[in-house]
Design a protein around this nucleic acid. Sequence first.
DNA 1: TTGAAAGCGTTACCAG
DNA 2: CTGGTAACGCTTTCAA
Lengths: 345, 345
Amino acid sequence: MGVTIKDVAKLAGVSAGTVSVVLNSKTGVSEKLRENVMRAIATLNYHPDHIARSLRVRRTNTLGMVLPQINTMFFGQVLRGAGDEALREGYSIFICDSNADVAQEQRHLATLYARRVDGVLLASAEVYFHRPEGAGREIPIVFFDRIPSGRRGPAVTTDNSEGAQEATNHLISLGHRRIALISGPLSISTGFERAEGFRRAMGAAGLPVREELFLCGDYMLEGGYRCAKELLSLPVPPTAIIAANEEMTMGLIQALADMGIPCPERVSIIGFDDLVTGPNGFSLATMFVPKLTVVAQPGYETGKVAVRTLLQNIGDIERKQEQEEGIIRLPAELRVRGSTAPPLR
Amino acid sequence: MGVTIKDVAKLAGVSAGTVSVVLNSKTGVSEKLRENVMRAIATLNYHPDHIARSLRVRRTNTLGMVLPQINTMFFGQVLRGAGDEALREGYSIFICDSNADVAQEQRHLATLYARRVDGVLLASAEVYFHRPEGAGREIPIVFFDRIPSGRRGPAVTTDNSEGAQEATNHLISLGHRRIALISGPLSISTGFERAEGFRRAMGAAGLPVREELFLCGDYMLEGGYRCAKELLSLPVPPTAIIAANEEMTMGLIQALADMGIPCPERVSIIGFDDLVTGPNGFSLATMFVPKLTVVAQPGYETGKVAVRTLLQNIGDIERKQEQEEGIIRLPAELRVRGSTAPPLR
DNA sequence: TTGAAAGCGTTACCAG
DNA sequence: CTGGTAACGCTTTCAA
């Protein structure tokens, strides 16, 4: 069926090796020969077999990406950034949704390894990362968003601590003192760091972090909803609430609506992530009433930088150079909108 | 570096071919031999090379998916459905964002063909589809969401006409007569079909489709915004507006907000697509004020069915059977919420 | 039931 | 600068 390099060689009256040289090296071929070969390629409509090439050169120009949730706005942005950068560099990406499940993540990783991807982008469901069982070979990994302990390799994430601090400081400067955090799991790096930024800002302002105002959610909508209800049912409820990720922010808003608590009059809220959708960077946070004050994460940039870092490391390994191992923290940005206001009285 | 099938064979004291048989056929191997080989595999930590295997068997267990916009709620759902189904069947998916650009789509398709994917899932940016230039081989394609004319091969999409009819009928039954449509491009099948459903419902009710109330947008937020403003600035504005996709719905809502027009008091609105995010099927449409009445599309199911159909066709080709060529229309569902109400007076 | 050998479509090495 | 030949790691005949 398929037309191979040999067919081209035959038609052009040269050897297969020569065709390969024409195809792969810019130089070292007489102009006449090159034209000859190119014509044969065109008439036969030849397309090199990427699989055969991969087998031979031991490089697939393929990346694997596994993340805990494919259809959220944040990861949607990451996907775009990663895809754009990969395309630019001639790489394709296998995208795998682990469903935040460790077993599924392992399964995906095993598949990716078997497929000989050149590198992996990983937002791991695991708290402590061990390389996939029996990978055989070492494949460069770049962690993004959440960074498991025990990792080896570079990571790119948002400056979560700084972002949470800014959010908290904003509330403090508005005059809030009873500020609550619906935190993510402290076992996940982003959850821990955001909690830590919150604590630091509170501490710096001489405000106590009351136990009943510091609730750990699970990064899921339902958890955020539950925590919000708990907070708002307190004898003395908080005057401001920060939710530590996009889904819990929705839960929080729903709880407010269900309980009929006006925002920002009775309680100010800040979400994490700007709920950006579509290619033009439109924020859904502006469609809520009131418009949501948020800490925006640079999702697109995260994907882009993660791919760039991974490609860099792949290159370094080939050149047997030292690889990057550090954590790259992309800046978060507080976007003040209508959901935050000074507390009553 | 990597441990190969030969290493396993050597350790187990058999030939490479035998190891392959043990690995790939359930039967025809003595129990003792099998155990022997398996032990060798375990101790060596051997993992078959998927690339080499693909080259030999001329099948990659890989699918390509190209879509015009990766980070929208609708396609996010499709991605999940497709990914889940592919995983179940042992396939991996290359996901490619064409950015709704024909040239980029062609580029992606060429890459996918070179990589010898077993099949392609395509939400095409092209109105008239031609197979990618010089694909060499015929690869099965399943179209999803939008269906270009000139296609060959099956397609799965929402029952757009029916969905638009239901939406229109709902408004009519509420008493609306001046109903406007912010349509998608009529060159795109989904746009055309939704417009057609709208027309049909209006016709059946004996209502005219006024020219000034039938605007063609571009499926983008800005376009929806512009159309909405135009409609609402009319001397006699419509009492109800339907927007034909998710981004134009946002544009419509924004226009309403900017112009300070109360919904549903002064104008009722219906969006297309339910803005579902996350794994639990949570609809963002419920977070707007008022909650949005929408025509929901079964995005997850679309992805799932598309993959299933594609795999079916791949199998049929191998068995040299006739392949499916029809259009599968998944039902749309009207979800009535707060943004639709009877017109004033 | 098992082994040997011939490819799958490339690229890389080594002669000429 | 070009051609032949040997891999790459696997599966699949075909014999034994």
